[in-house]
Amino acid sequence: MTRFCSTLLHSRAGLAGFVLLAVFVAGAALAPWLHLPDPTAIGLRTRLSPPDWIGFHPLGTDPLGRDVLSRLAFGGRTTLAVALTAVVLGAVLGTAIGIIAGFLGGGIDRVLMRVVDIQLAFPLMMLALLVVAVLGPSIGNVIVVLAVTSWNRYARIIRAQVLSLREREFVLSARAIGASSPWIMVHHILPNVATPALVVATLELARIIVMIAALSFLGLGVQPPDPDWGQMLAEGRLYISSAWWVVTFPGLAIVLTVLGVNLFGDWLRDYLDPKTRSNR
């Protein structure tokens, strides 16, 4: 843990990413205890009031007079929780499938990779829209849809890695000490693909946050009155010329979170690589 902190403090980009992420995660996690106004409380008399840094609505209010800062914080809760769950689901599923397909090869590999091909040939947004439209918009469905559109990226990349890894001599030496195939997959292959999986996961986290926003923007994600960044963007877009704050702040929140994820992910990849680890 001390090594984690000291190496993080030495990387400007990594630290910036970590701070950005920490601000948004903390803001979202602690939202109920920050004494913010009710994010769903409508106040028609204060609708579209501009940001007032020292007043009651620091980031202004939306067309229904709801506090933007409060909605941003509460909206972050759903956006980040949905994104993280979907990424973890997709990563676990995709990595497992990638390792199995790559390591065992043969018929299993062919079947799994054709499934990936089919899905890659299908527009992701279409698929997401279709599933959510059929099953109905709910947070659970959104998570499932996003995980389903995400696993094939891991599977593809991990499988390619495993194909070269399984020919390496350490796999043969693991067999020579009596390790079984499942054991080798978990204890020898998985640690070797954890880094690429993590890289994909950071890229995916960013993409999924944007996807959630897009789904909400289209009205298929989080349902009103629950706040969500994408939905805030959608509601504010009509007022972009008269009340810039309504779209700017949720837009900034998305951009900065994604940026933070990417910067931190980049640093994390270097941190976890044993080759760079020992030089420090």
Binding site: E169, P191, N192, A194
Partner: peptide, 13 residues
């Protein structure tokens, strides 16, 4: 069993 190439017969990670 000991293999030929000590560079690649140990798992690097």
């Amino acid at each position: 069993m000991v293999f030929q190439d000590p560079m690649s017969s140990l798992n690097p990670v």
